[in-house]
Design a protein around this nucleic acid. Structure first.
Length: 262
DNA sequence: CACCATGTTCCTTG
DNA sequence: CCAAGGAACATGGT
């Protein structure tokens, strides 16, 4: 790439803006993968032997996309890579996201639910050790990678487990069911997200992987994807009991008191 | 104005 | 040292 514009150094974490510019100048993207909620970009600089990695995280409101160079930059563009005819844009309203050369965060991540058929021993043992509510444990990225607040709620519903249940009180059978539920929920979310056009720049309300707010032209587009999240007071799809909301570790939890006992 | 929000990290307390 | 809880981060929507 030709040039790197850093408008918010915060998203670079500990990588100095100068270093990012220097490292990226002349480099090319060669690949991309994912680990937990982190995006891993592989790059190479022609003439140099060592490829290197760029680590991205979308936080709560981040987006990364490629757009024609003439497209006006969004208000909260944090980093823009000049690719010539196009720009790579990392835009993040809240600047909670990351775009950095620092790789430390990914090394601490727990197992990938989609890479393991059944619950790994380490996951089981960690749960058996903790008195914290299971919902809180699911958000711990060192225990299991990639589960956030929404899908933690959804997975617990499908596994029929109360979010309040102390982790150590789950049976091995329940842990197995929970692991499977997490895999299902994430697979379906990825499948649903795949219906979003690849060049989608995230400027309308259906901003990617989950529904947030109303899409007037297709009210049901995402409606059946989330069965409890943000549905306080609405009837559970399985038993019609009103969905409840509670706060755990300063986050909202939604659950069905009838389908999720214990 | 008050309160809420998809995530992570840091600080304090026990 | 570890577990647990809460605040902070920054901005926008309701």
């Amino acid at each position: 790439m030709r040039n790197v514009l850093v408008r918010r150094t915060r998203v670079l974490a500990s990588t100095p803006a100068r270093q990012l510019k220097q490292t990226l100048s002349g480099a090319e993207f060669t690949g991309m993968s994912r680990r937990g909620k982190y995006l891993l970009f592989t790059l190479r600089t022609p003439g140099r032997v060592e490829p290197f990695m760029l680590v991205g995280h979308l936080g709560m409101t981040g987006r990364m996309y490629v757009a024609p160079a003439k497209t006006p930059l969004p208000k909260h563009a944090a980093v823009v890579l000049d690719l010539g005819r196009e720009n790579f844009v990392f835009e993040d309203t809240r600047y909670f996201g990351r775009f950095t050369l620092e790789t430390g965060a990914i090394e601490k991540l727990g197992p990938e639910p989609l890479a393991q058929e059944s619950a790994p021993e380490g996951f089981q043992r960690a749960l058996k050790r903790s008195a914290q509510p299971i919902k809180v444990k699911l958000l711990d990225q060192e225990l299991i990678a990639g589960v956030g607040n929404i899908y933690a709620c959804e997975a617990l519903l499908r596994a029929g487990i109360s979010p309040k249940r102390p982790a150590k009180k789950l049976t091995l059978t329940q842990i197995g069911q929970l692991w499977r539920a997490i895999r299902e929920v994430l697979s379906e979310a990825i499948e649903g997200g795949s219906t979003v056009p690849l060049n989608y720049s995230g400027t309308d309300k259906r901003d990617g992987l989950f529904y947030f707010g109303r899409a007037p032209e297709a009210p049901d587009f995402y409606a059946e994807r989330l069965r409890v999240y943000d549905r306080e007071g609405l009837p559970c799809g399985a038993c019609r009991t009103p969905i409840r909301r509670l706060v755990q570790a300063a986050r909202s939890t939604f659950y069905c008191p009838r389908c999720q006992r214990g």
